[in-house]
Design a protein around this nucleic acid. Structure first.
Lengths: 249, 249
DNA sequence: CCTAACTCCGTACACCTTACGAAGATTGTA
DNA sequence: TACAATCTTCGTAAGGTGTACGGAGTTAGG
């Protein structure tokens, strides 16, 4: 079963080398394949990520990659767990606000370092060593704060979901300015004639006002970092409210 | 410029029919193309969504579709604004908790009705009529609650980002159970030997305990609806805290 | 020593988007 | 009425994609 093989690849370090194979030794290693694959995805994004490009980068031919990993989607699973291992999981310090904040910021950084993470659409969420270690570390941030086990899982999910959503917005806006090959000014210049015709003054009273305010404060496209911070602070307030209600804090 | 053409397609109803073209009349309409495209995406997801399938569904040949829309990514932009128009934007009622809750639930429903929305990776966020109307409506939910213009934008973004993140988790878990062709039990049966070997008891003290609790409460895969509700309630608490701090409520 | 098992990889197939141009339909205008 | 301009439809082809299959060569176990 391919599931089994992929799982063994995920936990390859814990399982040790699978001695005694007959044919010629592999020229490179799964780790090299994964590293090259991550580099390709970092540079070009997941849609443009292809087995051919991974092979090229390694100086091998396309079909050889398939002796290292079962296929494209399994390789992506391996990449996801690999980058989950880049984080610093040193013991938590400070009050719960700081701890939980750090959990969120770590995810935020990871998404920005590897924007393709948000394009991953696995049909099976692989359980890998780095993902498992991180989940344990995330829970440790709120261990002993007075939450039930169920609430602990829910809080970590809340933080993860919000951060993923905010990072998605941030990355899409970044892609917009980088990759569209068009400055904001140019874009508005092209669109203005149509939009002026179709959005007469007064048609959007609130968004007109709010959009202007927001546009002036953070410039035009929104300041994703600041939006993230605002949302995170509200969520931390909400978590503190829950702790108070539970009789802690 | 293709930007201009797409924008005109987005606002086609407001702009009226562009009279006086010379050649033969078009056999169908942009609306029919968009509707067919949405149906394909609903059924098969965005990766499997192709121009050919849209053409087939309409009884036309592949290249004819390109006389209606500039290309695949522009068609997707049109689809996004189209489904944004399915919502009921009737006036808000109830207190702010209810209003904001309804904003979130509406997005939640939309993502579940059209899961491919979360797979969209536009390089330009098109400004369409339905998206604009909805943003106005979302702001109206918190108009007059005592927030600054900037805070209003930030609150709507917070709700949108969290909902997108939670919906993403929910949809991925739904896809997992549907599409993997494998029940949870089967999956664990295959994985158990490897995981047992590699995650010895005590290796993950907190996640072991929390995972068990969560698994028992909502069964095994997590109950996305309930996780969404929990997160939303925390965020609403956080927003109320902000209002109190601002001197309202 | 020889065969089983492995690596590497060429070829092929079935998909994808879209550029280009041909063929035919329609309309505005001379 | 004629005819050019302009449009729709669509065939073809180029350049991508993932991966099934099988062949050639290499290595280690029995």
């Amino acid at each position: 079963m391919e599931v089994d093989r992929t799982l063994r690849l995920l936990w390859r370090r814990a399982l040790g080398t699978p001695q005694g194979s007959r044919g010629p030794k592999q020229r490179i290693s799964v780790d090299k394949v994964i590293t090259a694959a991550i580099a390709v995805a970092d540079e070009e994004g997941l849609p443009a990520f292809s087995m051919r490009k991974v092979a090229d980068r390694l100086g091998m031919k396309l079909m050889s990659i398939y002796t290292y990993v079962p296929g494209r989607s399994e390789l992506i699973g391996l990449m996801v767990d690999e980058v989950a291992g880049e984080q610093d999981l040193s013991p938590h310090e400070g009050d719960i606000r700081l701890r939980v904040g750090r959990v969120a910021e770590q995810l935020w950084d990871e998404y920005h370092r590897h924007p393709w993470l948000l394009q991953v659409e696995s049909s099976r969420p692989w359980i890998g060593p780095n993902g498992s270690d991180r989940y344990e570390w995330q829970l440790a941030a709120i261990e002993g704060a007075g939450l039930t086990d169920l609430e602990m899982d829910q809080v970590v999910t809340l933080i993860s979901d919000f951060t993923a959503g905010a990072a998605r917005t941030s990355i899409m806006s970044r892609r917009t300015s980088e990759e569209s090959g068009m400055s904001d000014a140019q874009w508005w210049e092209i669109n203005a004639p149509v939009l002026d015709q179709v959005m007469p003054p007064g048609r959007y009273p609130i968004s007109g006002r709010v959009g202007t305010a927001a546009g002036e404060e953070y410039n035009a496209l929104g300041d994703p970092q600041r939006l993230f911070r605002f949302g995170l602070d509200r969520i931390l307030d909400g978590i503190e409210t829950l702790l108070k209600r539970n009789g802690h804090l």
